[in-house]
Amino acid sequence: MARNEEKAQSMLNRFITMKAEEKKKPKERRPYLASECRDLAEADKWRQQIMREIGRKVAEIQNEGLGEHRLRDLNDEINKLIREKTHWERRIIELGGPNYTRHSAKMTDLDGNIVDVPNPGGRGPGYRYFGAAKKLPGVKELFEKPPELRKRRTRYDIYKRIDASYYGYRDDEDGILEKLEGPAETKMRAAVVEEWMEMEKIKAEARRAVKSGAVAEVGAVSKILFEEEEDVVEEERRIEREKEVTEKEKEFVAHVPLPDEEEIKRRVLEKKKQEMLNKYTSSELLEELTEAKTLLNIQQ
């Protein structure tokens, strides 16, 4: 029995294949510009064809073993087909067809999160990466989120969060502090009252002992008397210090008459006059001036 390859090369099979191809319509070519299409059905047909091509190339680009150059070429071809699909979708809207761009797929990163694609042109989608092209050198960094910079808090931000709770003014609002402070306050108040009553009792005993002439030097009475004695001694020392300061101030005695303010001003003026004369007059003129003062009996 002949093999399948030999059957396909037989005269009959080639004749049948040739007749089948003659009956087929000539293969239509997609228009270069979407604006050349005038039929809505044809525009939708060309869009479906582009979608199938995009699907085949997206399935092919998933293979990481194709190499960097082939992956980049495939990614460029896919982006070109996507732009062409956008033109056809816009043309379909112009011919009165449905709006396919409303439900178009979004671009995602390696984790599946939707990301915005920058498009400086402002028309149609931006450049996208598919499959293994996302892991190419220089492309993976585009999908990584930059680390968040920790903003340093200013002094204003620090003080803005400070309220009454920071200073402890609201510690008693939870009810815990009141339960702890109540018994402690009662205990401290009782201790202070007891101490005051004891002191009053001791002072009364001391007064009675002083009036009767007895000497009260035992127990807590001696403590009270000693404290009062200390206060008296301290007061006497303070008075003595003040007296010493007063006596020292009075010790200074001037044994020579001191010039008053007018005399000091006069002497300063004479000294300045003498300095001016020495500066602007000669020695001969000074001698003549002195002689003249002597003859006229002028003291100044």
Rank of each mutant, 00 (worst) to 15 (best):
E228G: 05
R152Q: 12
H255E: 06
K7N: 00
K272G: 01
L296R: 08
F252H: 04
R238P: 01
M1N: 01
I61H: 03
P137D: 07
A214R: 10
M18F: 08
R189S: 11
K106N: 06
N297F: 00
R91V: 01
E178M: 10
T108D: 02
G65S: 15
Q62D: 06
K265H: 06
K187S: 04
A59Y: 07
T290H: 14
H69S: 14
K272D: 02
R189G: 03
D163L: 07
E94Y: 04
S283I: 13
I78R: 05
Q9L: 13
E185A: 09
K187R: 11
R29I: 15
V221R: 11
A190I: 08
L33D: 14
R102M: 03
E53Q: 15
V115A: 05
F143Y: 12
E22A: 12
V268T: 09
N75W: 01
Q62K: 05
F15M: 10
E270A: 08
K248V: 08
R189Y: 08
Y127N: 03
E53F: 09
A204H: 06
E77W: 08
V192I: 12
S222I: 05
N119C: 01
Y129Q: 05
G175V: 07
E227T: 03
K7S: 01
L277G: 03
T86A: 12
E275N: 13
M51L: 11
I50R: 07
E230N: 08
Q299D: 12
D44G: 04
W46T: 04
H69L: 12
E244R: 13
R30Q: 13
A206G: 02
L40G: 09
E262M: 07
R123M: 03
R56I: 08
N79Y: 05
L66W: 08
E84S: 13
D163M: 06
A105P: 11
M107Y: 03
K201Q: 12
M276N: 03
E53T: 08
R237K: 08
